[in-house]
Design a protein around this nucleic acid. Structure first.
Lengths: 150, 150
DNA sequence: AATGAATATTAATTCAAC
DNA sequence: GTTGAATTAATATTCATT
């Protein structure tokens, strides 16, 4: 496996797993029969400018480069400007309605942003259900959406 | 010195210095006659969700939390929407003209964003000079500004 | 140039003290 | 609850090999 392919994999792993240590990468890659050592992961991380972010509550997790995340927010803004219809918050849920065909894309972008207040998202054709970590977080998230629409 | 005050200081240090290791914080604080150990800094970093970012080229540096940086970009967008007049790129410089009184604020926000393409900024009353690391970077920066204005 | 093994460095945590 | 000293854990780098 070439380096570029491995690094693409790392990027995927970061989105689908909560990765706390470089050894976690090593183990996940082993499951795919890719043998690399922590040293290589360390070099990949440096090259890809991945960062280790302290969680709001307990541990740490690896994340995409800050500058990439800025780009993601930009994309989200554009799609919302095009496709946004309504949003509603109840308890620790927020439902975002959009024009048909945009739900999945919006949900994906939200996932990519790895917002600390968001537990997870489910994207349908024209609806996104955002599950926050608390009601307070749901309100913060609502504010973020409203800010994007300003 | 209380914890909150020290953490406020850390936030300042991050903006004014290139901090590569937790020990750098320790040494900088010592200069202000504040004695703390690396252990305390590590705990502060976790609490403040500071991150260690790989530089584009060589080393690493500590930086503000990604979510804060998103907020900064938001602020920059608003002030530019209000105050932007023109911008021009030449070599690795970009000059941004704004309405009187806004130059300093814009320069500060740019500094806070710690963009990897930017070497430094100088803010006057109605002008900001942005010194990029290369002509290529200056073009990227120009694009960023243009995107913000869209 | 890319990598692993070993190592050096850096960062996080434990445990005791306050 | 906060901290430092000591320790453990995690990460970066060096040095050799391919």
């Amino acid at each position: 496996m070439r380096k570029v392919d491995r690094q693409r994999l790392l990027k995927n792993l970061i989105q689908t797993h909560e990765i706390e240590r470089q050894e976690d990468f090593v183990k996940l890659l082993q499951k795919e029969d890719i043998d690399v050592t922590q040293a290589t992961i360390s070099r990949d991380i440096k090259e890809m400018q991945l960062i280790k972010v302290p969680n709001a509550d307990d541990g740490y997790h690896y994340s995409l480069p800050p500058e990439k995340k800025l780009d993601v927010k930009e994309k989200l803004r554009r799609i919302l400007r095009d496709a946004y219809i309504t949003h509603n918050q109840q308890d620790y849920f927020v439902v975002v309605k959009a024009s048909p065909g945009n739900g999945t894309a919006i949900a994906n972008l939200l996932d990519q942003m790895q917002l600390s207040m968001v537990f997870g998202t489910i994207g349908g054709d024209d609806t996104v259900l955002v599950i926050c970590k608390s009601e307070e977080n749901a309100k913060q998230f609502t504010k973020l959406i409203e800010d994007l629409l300003k």
